[in-house]
Amino acid sequence: MQYMLLLHHDDTPFAAASPQDQETMSAPYMAYNEALIKAGAMVSGERLQGASSATTVRVRDGRTEVLDGPFAATKEQLGGFYIIEAPDLDAALNWAARCPSANYGTVEVRPIWPTR
């Protein structure tokens, strides 16, 4: 099965950090990516620009509304995602627990809708 790991965390400390500190903070993700690839579990994964760069769009009654800012105004914001291949939920939860974001934010695990 494929699962998406949605990484929610407070991204302000990262944004405020010096480039050098940002590199240090990114190191655990590099190691995590390596582990996913080595296990053959990595399908894809991306880090997103900070929530302050988000724009939301919705169309109501034929009118397009564009708003600056993320969908929900909460402290923990979607900061990135992985799509992984895992045999079952337990395996996916294991990967989620190893994700660096789980230590300071929350990782949501969602099965991908099967299309076949």
Binding site: M1, Y3, A86, P87, D88, L89, D90, A92, P111
Partner: peptide
């Protein structure tokens, strides 16, 4: 079914 909860002894 949807979340893929396994049937096994942990």
């Amino acid at each position: 079914k949807q979340a893929g909860i396994p049937f096994r002894i942990p």
